[in-house]
Design a protein around this nucleic acid. Structure first.
Length: 234
DNA sequence: CCAGACGTTGTT
DNA sequence: GTCTGG
DNA sequence: CCAGACGTTGTT
DNA sequence: GTCTGG
């Protein structure tokens, strides 16, 4: 998962918080960032910089021309040929203030927006790579977002969620060798420090990028209206 | 060395 | 193409 | 992730 | 159904 997210705040603030040099000239609030679009990412380039990168890596072009990788499973990222070197060399942080998962309600999917109680801004773990783009003179950077097992809150909607790097570990993720091992980064962000609400269906369209995408339509229903049963439900 | 695999999600 | 497995 | 398209030949 | 585009 994590196929959409928001970054409605000033990216300059994201950069300032991480002491990154801001390289983004023009920005606007983003209420619905979708794969293939550009979004701000913090990476190392000498020092830390905030740059606009494309969301989605093509997997090995010689092997297959099609297919966009927007996520990478944290559990396997250290061994996958496409990602293992990026994990060692090209980690990045993806600033966000919310992400969407889609919940089945009868026959329709409803978007659910997840936010952090700590404060609006958070950072998702990402990997970046150079990528040739049709029509571009030189390769450009593109990124994927790492995913992990869902915590108890997100699990009400979906079984995966983005890897969220706590602010106090951002430096470690970006610059250091894995001091405590990679696995410690993959732990799902605590459910009790997150909120969730039903969002408007305008989010469904990847080209809609308007404030109503983050309007709350109310709390998550306790039970999936589709009547989801637990595996052992009686 | 060669052979064979090579990605993610979800499948409401 | 490039990496892993045998 | 969801939305939306989804074909070929030959054509003045 | 399956693929592409955003």
């Amino acid at each position: 998962m994590c196929g959409r997210y928001t970054h409605t705040g000033d990216p300059v603030r994201s950069a300032r918080q991480l002491k990154a040099e801001n390289q983004i000239q023009n920005w606007r609030p983003r209420y619905n960032i979708a794969p293939t679009q550009s979004a701000p990412v913090v990476l190392l380039e000498g020092g830390r910089v905030l740059r606009s990168l494309l969301w989605g890596l093509r997997h090995n072009q010689a092997f297959s021309a099609s297919g966009l990788l927007i996520n990478a499973r944290s559990e396997s990222v250290a061994t996958k040929p496409r990602f293992k070197n990026l994990l060692l060399q090209q980690r990045c942080l993806v600033p966000a203030d919310g992400f969407f998962e889609w919940q089945w309600s009868g026959r329709r999917r409803s978007p659910v927006r997840f936010t952090l109680r700590d404060g609006p801004l958070f950072y998702m773990a990402g990997l970046w790579d150079w990528q040739a783009e049709p029509g571009a003179a030189a390769p450009v950077r593109a990124f994927v977002i790492l995913t992990t097992e869902a915590n108890d809150l997100v699990a009400r909607v979906h079984d995966r969620m983005p890897v969220i790097v706590p602010e106090e570990r951002c430096a470690e993720w970006l610059e250091d060798a894995p001091v405590k091992g990679w696995d410690s980064f993959w732990r799902p962000f605590p459910a009790e420090r997150m909120d969730a609400y039903l969002a408007h269906a305008v989010v469904n369209s990847p080209t809609t990028d308007a404030p109503e995408c983050i309007q709350s339509l109310g709390p998550l229903p306790e039970v999936n209206p589709a009547g989801e049963q637990t595996e052992f439900g009686f």
